[in-house]
Design a protein around this nucleic acid. Structure first.
Length: 260
DNA sequence: ATGGCCATAACATATGGA
């Protein structure tokens, strides 16, 4: 079974890329972020034709928005963080049948946070705190759990093209990294780091300053697997293919392979 | 030469992203 996470930076603008990429890389379940559309505009029919008849969307106008696209039924869909009042559409959870038993999938578009000290940064820290409590509760109820999405955190220096120059800037702060470590401490593992990876592996590159061409990127899109799921994890990789296409998302998809 | 982009709204400019 293959699963993936991808921030598409507008599903309207990227629908053809989603169709083209899933044709090349036929993942069974795909978590999307930054849909930037309301649920009435969600292209369910086009995605069903692309092989994903089971979709759950949680969108809003212009900003944010997340969805799960699946080849098999999704059940117990929950929108947003239970226990955290949020005006933004940022999290969607569902259970899918997987080899070895049901799998709980949480797909999130984490707060960007703009800059340390800003009101948006304070919101990011509150949001991360709410998420941590929610994931702890979900893990207790569903030991086989996968937390995926655009975390907007570069967990370690090696996850940034310029860790010294960007020290303590957004995505690199001690507070954001501590929150990432707190998620791991719940009993999750960063699937990407279970395997040998190329040096300077990133999942996002700025549209400006020839960011992609110079590989000036960050690894901020992640898949965290619970202890119970870990024995089934067979691989994890970033697929830069669609980042090279015309009018790409600024993020690349990250793929997780599970045994069976 | 230290900046170079992109998507959206209903604007020809502003906001947010990361």
């Amino acid at each position: 079974m293959k699963l993936a996470t991808w921030n598409v930076n507008s599903l309207t603008a990227r629908l053809q890329h989603v169709r083209d990429w899933t044709a090349l890389e036929p993942v069974d379940l795909l978590g999307l972020q930054e849909l930037k559309l309301t649920d009435d505009k969600f292209p369910a029919e086009a995605l069903a034709e692309a092989g994903y008849p089971h979709c759950a969307a949680f969108g809003q106008k212009t900003y944010n928005g997340v969805a799960l696209l699946s080849r098999t039924p999704l059940r117990d869909v929950v929108r947003n963080i239970v226990g955290f009042d949020d005006e933004h559409a940022r999290v969607i959870a569902a259970t899918v049948e997987a080899p070895g038993g049901p799998l709980r999938v949480l797909n999130g578009y984490f707060v960007n946070g703009q800059a340390p000290g800003s009101e948006k940064f304070a919101y990011k820290l509150r949001w991360l705190d709410g998420l941590l409590r929610y994931v702890a509760a979900e893990l207790a109820a569903h030991p086989r759990l996968l937390l995926m999405g655009d975390f907007n955190v570069a967990p370690e220096d090696r996850d940034s093209f310029d860790p010294e120059g960007l020290r303590d800037t957004i995505h690199h702060t001690r507070e954001e990294r501590a929150h990432f470590q707190a998620l791991l401490a719940l009993g999750l593992v960063d699937a990407f780091r279970l395997f040998e990876q190329p040096e300077k592996s990133y999942s996002w590159w700025d549209y400006r300053m020839l960011g992609y061409q110079k590989n000036r990127g960050l690894r901020i899109d992640h898949l965290l697997a619970s202890e119970a799921l870990r024995p089934q994890v067979r691989g994890c990789r970033i697929d830069r293919t669609p980042r090279k296409w015309k009018q790409p998302s600024d993020h690349a998809p990250v793929i997780l392979e599970l045994a069976g």
